[in-house]
Design a protein around this nucleic acid. Structure first.
Lengths: 228, 228
DNA sequence: TCCATATTTCGATTATAGTGGAAGTATGGA
DNA sequence: TCCATACTTCCACTATAATCGAAATATGGA
């Protein structure tokens, strides 16, 4: 009966929460591993694998195999643009309970994004380091300046050790709820673990939010001049 | 657990065969009754009613009650544009019969897309106007040049009147059969109605295709230098 | 060679959305 | 007033898709 292309087939790919989360995570245009995407969508690796296979088959996402990792990426700019136009007509997340609304507040304040910090804290830290001239922003990554190298060393972070890791050093991660980039990669990860070690932040059980301790408030003010 | 806008919620509305058929049926921009749409989607009135309620709630479709009929229509050009761009990345229609394949050909040649022209005719017109310097393409819309203003006025189109309408003036819409952008918005609509008034195109009954008349062939050649 | 990690495949379970029958409401006409 | 039409609501039924545990495969490193 229908002499139109099969919209439902593609649309149903975005019409499922886990896959929609995976796709919006991919909207930064970068490659992401299957485990990373599983974490983002808060599902097990099996489930993510199942969804990713569908997305690849549906021609929205492509894979590149490298060693034991598989790197996933949106198939092209067109897909990203369509996703974006979808975001524009999508209703804001619905808050169903008091508990949920307070959880959302916590998440907006400070949370982990895979293995680095996001939320207001993540943005503020990144902004601060840019502003102080420790980082410089490129297209899709941050560059550590000479001044920055000194800063991170004084903070107690071993840059050489981080650089030796076989992973992206300091790319920009885009979170669509904030529409701003924050620092990710080995450096983003190194910073986060450092803050945990210093006791500036602690994990909030069962959700991805992190809490800034009193010690942390002082620390972030002194080292980054931000009030949280 | 993510705090993204709810893409999945809207996308899942298009991700179901019956609803997708209903929505593409509504892409002619006209009103349709519930029973009509039930017939198009090949489901019972109950089921159609169920789906239409969801579409209205999801803000993709609006209703107008008149007597015992309910007339359904797409909520606006924005929705039509997203649908059309979805058609563009969807797998091509499966052709099961000779009749269907000739209908597909007609649609590819020239059709309405909500309230403006699409298909080869839509693309050729847009290309021609770009080439002649009447329009300039931006990221997501077309700009009418000074030369263009003169052209449209000579053609008998009142640009000021179109600009006063409370809607997007001249955005770009991704054509599913040509996989290129064509002119939409108030200007796209104005052009289409003008061609209908001039008798250059006529509607093909029961599908969205339009037919170019002999008068139209001459007119499009003279004014736009395109052979259809 | 052996173990850890990254990912997929298989199988079983569970939740949910689409479906139509039956019955209800609203409107128009005879 | 009565019936036909247009549409909706209520209520099961069913099919299917998402999910995860368990196990398999593939790669890298010790």
């Amino acid at each position: 009966m229908s002499i139109n292309p099969n919209v439902a087939e593609v649309a149903s790919l975005l019409g499922e929460t886990s896959r929609a989360t995976i796709l919006t995570s991919l909207m930064d245009g970068r490659f992401h591993t299957a485990s990373e995407l599983a974490y983002m969508a808060a599902v097990t690796p099996q489930t993510a694998s199942f969804h990713l296979a569908k997305l690849v088959e549906g021609n929205l996402v492509k894979v590149e195999k490298q060693g034991r990792h598989r790197y996933y990426q949106l198939v092209g700019g067109e897909v990203a643009r369509i996703l974006e136009s979808f975001l524009a007509i999508s209703p804001p997340p619905e808050v169903r309970s008091l508990k949920q609304s307070s959880q959302v507040k916590l998440l907006q304040e400070a949370r982990t994004c895979y293995d680095h910090l996001a939320g207001k804290l993540g943005i503020n830290l990144t902004e601060s380091m840019l502003h102080s001239g420790y980082l410089k922003k490129e297209e899709r990554e941050f560059i550590v300046t000479l001044k920055g190298e000194q800063f991170f060393t004084e903070l107690g972070i071993d840059l050489d050790k981080l650089k030796r890791k076989r992973r992206s050093f300091s790319h920009a991660c885009l979170d669509w709820s904030e529409r701003q980039h924050h620092l990710a990669g080995a450096l983003g990860h190194g910073l986060m673990t450092h803050f945990f070690d210093l006791g500036w932040i602690v994990r909030v059980p069962s959700i991805r939010a992190v809490k800034i301790t009193d010690k942390g408030k002082v620390g972030f003010k002194q080292s980054f001049n931000i009030n949280m």
